[in-house]
Simulated scan of single mutants.
Amino acid sequence: MKPDLNPINIIILVINSLGLILTVPAICGLFTVVRNDHVVPIYVINLLISDLIHMCCMITRVKSFSFHFYMIDVMARAAFMMCVALERYLVIAWPHWYQFKRSVTVSVLISLIVWLCPFVAFIIGFLSSYTSIIIVTFFLVPFPVIVFSLVGTLKSLSAAISVSSEEKRQIVGAVVLVLCSYMLLSVSVIIFFLFLRDNPALSLVFTICSSFSPLLDLVLYVFMGKGATDKLRALLCCCRKETQRPKQQVLTVSGDRTGTVSSM
């Protein structure tokens, strides 16, 4: 069955296709920086994987599309946003504890638990006929944790002397970005289940907002993958040198001629 290619669906298709193209290399790039002493990108990788599933579901939207599977993935995204924000706080506020207590194995195990929680919550909601209430509650739980992580991170950074101003901006930017992405996703989900579910026209708000949310998550790659940022800066510097090289050559020639005249 072919999807309904109305203007809204075309916009959603373009947004998710663009996000899909950018998410795959971002995941591969973060995989290359994961080490036993650097496990911070693991939750971001899981968040981007959930975004990947989300965008694939949105691209293949047809009438036979499983809405239940889509909602489980969206719930997992909200949970991983909470993990990313909380981990950023722990890295700054408790660096020694985090360095010795966290490993790749622990982070992977927590990630598996996070993937399992939406399935359990959705099954309980489906069996008890309280699916909407459980889903809304599931999306409300990460909010105080993310806000606490943001406030705690700001307080810890204000007292940190060894952290450079650029690193502080990256850390704060990552947590603020997580909060914005979470608000865009959770508010649209809560409004959809409480008010717009029975209104097909207004439910497009949920679809469009949830489509833009993965694009915000992609920006986390810039904050988490420092090597990628350095490579981007190096590329920009090379481009600047290439554009300035002709002028420098002209100045050098002029200088040589001037030097020759002076020697005469």
Rank of each mutant, 00 (worst) to 15 (best):
K2L: 10
L5K: 03
P7W: 07
I8K: 06
I11D: 11
I12F: 07
V14M: 06
V14F: 12
N16T: 05
L18D: 00
G19H: 04
I21R: 02
I21Y: 06
T23I: 15
V24S: 00
C28T: 08
C28H: 09
G29T: 02
G29C: 00
F31Y: 06
F31N: 10
V33N: 00
V34H: 04
V39Y: 00
V39R: 02
I42M: 02
Y43H: 12
V44D: 05
L48G: 07
L48Q: 09
S50W: 07
H54P: 03
H54K: 08
S64F: 07
F65A: 13
S66C: 08
F69Q: 10
A76I: 01
A85M: 01
I92W: 00
A93Q: 09
H96D: 07
K101E: 05
V106Y: 09
V106G: 02
L109R: 06
V114E: 03
V114R: 02
C117L: 15
C117N: 14
I123F: 13
G125Q: 09
F126G: 08
L127Y: 14
L127Q: 14
L127W: 11
S128V: 10
S128R: 15
I134W: 07
I135Y: 01
I135P: 02
T137D: 07
T137S: 14
V141C: 02
V145L: 13
V147S: 04
V147F: 07
G152N: 03
T153M: 03
T153R: 02
L157A: 10
S158Q: 14
S164N: 07
S165V: 12
L177D: 13
Y182W: 08
Y182R: 03
M183R: 01
S188F: 02
V189H: 08
I190K: 04
I191L: 15
I191R: 09
L194G: 01
L196Y: 12
D198M: 08
L202R: 13
L202Y: 11
F206P: 01
S210K: 04
S211A: 15
S213P: 02
P214W: 02
L215Q: 09
Y221K: 01
F223P: 03
M224C: 11
G225H: 15
K226W: 04
G227M: 05
L235Y: 13
L235N: 12
L236F: 06
C237A: 11
R240P: 01
T243S: 13
T243R: 15
R245G: 01
L251K: 06
G255E: 09
G255N: 11
T258V: 05
T258Q: 12
V261Q: 10
M264N: 06
M264L: 11
